[in-house]
Design a protein around this nucleic acid. Structure first.
Length: 420
RNA sequence: GCGGAUGUAGCUCAGUUGGCAGAGCACCUGGUUGUGGCCCAGGGGGUCGUGAGUUCAACCCUCAUCAUUCGCCCCA
């Protein structure tokens, strides 16, 4: 297994090779195209931010901030973090760049690697990639509906249909505290030894999360738990029913899930998630929600906003096996005694628009033709003894196993013919 | 941070109660085919993850360690 101390990749940081890397590129291109149709503009962002940005945006008490960030001091002792999610950085950049003052409605798209220090498993690595959209400046239910429809549109374009859209409302600053109090009070009435260990802890730390515990015993105890729907204010209720009506009108089936809770503190009102049961335990492919007030909390203008993130590795898991056929090269040049000539002919053909390679070394004709075959080249251009003497090249059709000689000076026109 | 599983050739994996390390695929060379694919013959490649221990003898048993992987937690 290699030499004593061959370098290794950092744990949880994957190298993406050919089929996978092409899949990621096509995801990004499809995202640019589809999101562009809805008016989203691409933003390219740094991976590193001052650590306190995330504490302020995501919430000091969240797991992400407390134990999942890559945080370290720079040379002057300032704490930096590799971004664990995209929203905070996007909002910081837009505020700092004056975007929110120049336009009343901002739609931005960004993508790239995110970092969380977690134990890797299927669908989760320490460096992972997200597509991320944020719509800032619109508090209307139409904004919620549009961004969800856009996400579904994108997934449809990627050939993914069988995801379940979970939808919930989390209330707002006005009504959520009352609900949290009611839920906590209810949880305290339960016999503690019937709740799982995690849930007993969560009553203190984050009562909302008890709602989506997967333990059967917890689930049954929670059947009679108060629902957010009974506590939300009329504004939130109206907003939520408008969003549902708009989605329904567009034929977007959604599953109302009163237990859907998001782990980032900034979410309010609409929360949604797209879930698959086909890719292991980490089934959330995309998720997002509304975050009115977050921009102001980060020192920007008081704007409402909504956004989502889509996990590219999890998308790739869904797409596994549906890999599109790789394009075949047009030619391969086998020239056992004329590697230099082969190189220059290859350049001629490429400048004429064909793709292909020439053998570098002076291996046997047999081995060079094997190489042509392995490359799945359509044509093999052979320069053997005879062709070398006559200044010609043998052009072999690798599928039909037919061939004909051609003067080398005719290659440009042969290439032009091939292109047509 | 906590559990379970797995580390043997480039890849996928066999390996008996402890007794000289194997297959398929891939790769290389040659034969045959008008010069590739199919077929035939041959070949290269492994300190059995690493380090200790038990034993006359360890891929196999014991301990440690590292890595990978699937879960928990959390999230996309």
């Amino acid at each position: 297994m290699g030499s004593l101390t061959s370098p290794r990749a950092v744990k949880g940081f994957a190298d993406l090779f050919e089929p996978q890397s092409a899949l990621f590129t096509s995801m990004e291109n499809t995202a640019r195209r589809v999101f562009g149709m809805y008016g989203y503009k691409e933003l390219r962002l740094p991976l590193l931010e001052y650590a306190d940005l995330f504490a302020r945006a995501i919430g000091e008490e969240t797991d992400v901030v407390q134990k999942e960030m890559f945080t370290f001091p720079d040379r002057k002792g300032r704490l930096l973090s590799l971004r664990p999610e995209a929203t905070a950085g996007i909002l910081r950049a837009c505020a700092e760049g004056g975007l929110f003052r120049r336009e009343s409605l901002s739609k931005v798209f960004s993508c790239g690697p995110m970092f969380r220090y977690e134990r890797p498993q299927k669908g989760r690595s320490r460096q992972f990639h997200q597509l991320d959209c944020e719509c800032v400046g619109a508090g209307e239910p139409q904004a919620d509906a549009e961004i969800i429809l856009m996400l579904l549109h994108f997934l449809r374009e990627m050939g993914i249909r069988d995801l379940v859209l979970d939808l919930n409302t989390l209330g707002c600053r006005a009504c959520r505290p009352a609900y949290t109090r009611a839920l906590t009070a209810f949880l305290r009435t339960l016999p503690p030894d019937h709740l799982c260990e995690n849930c007993r802890r969560r009553i203190q730390t984050n009562p909302l999360r008890v709602l989506d515990c997967k333990e059967p015993s917890c689930r049954s105890l929670l059947r009679d738990a108060p629902l957010i729907a009974e506590y939300i204010c009329p504004d939130c209720a109206g907003h939520f029913s408008d969003v549902r009506a708009l989605l329904e009108d567009q034929g977007a089936a959604c599953n109302l899930n009163p237990r859907l809770v998001r782990g980032l503190d900034y979410y309010c009102r609409t929360a949604f998630e797209l879930v698959s049961s086909a890719i292991g335990a980490q089934g959330a492919v995309a998720g997002g929600g509304r975050y009115d007030g977050l921009v102001a909390q980060l020192g920007g203008p008081d704007l409402p906003g909504i956004g989502f993130a889509c996990g590219m590795e999890r998308l790739a898991l869904l797409l596994a096996g549906s890999g599109q056929e790789q394009g075949r090269p047009d030619f391969f040049i086998a020239a056992p005694k004329a590697a230099g000539t082969a190189l220059s002919l290859a350049q001629t053909l490429r400048e004429a628009g064909l793709s292909g390679e020439a053998a570098f070394s002076d291996g046997s004709l047999k081995s060079q033709m094997r190489q042509a075959s392995r490359n799945r080249a359509r044509f093999c251009l052979i320069i053997g003894e005879e062709e070398l003497a006559r200044g010609t090249v043998m052009i072999r059709d690798m599928d039909k196993a037919t061939q004909q000689p051609l003067p080398r000076t005719d290659l440009p026109s042969w290439a032009a013919e091939r292109r047509a």
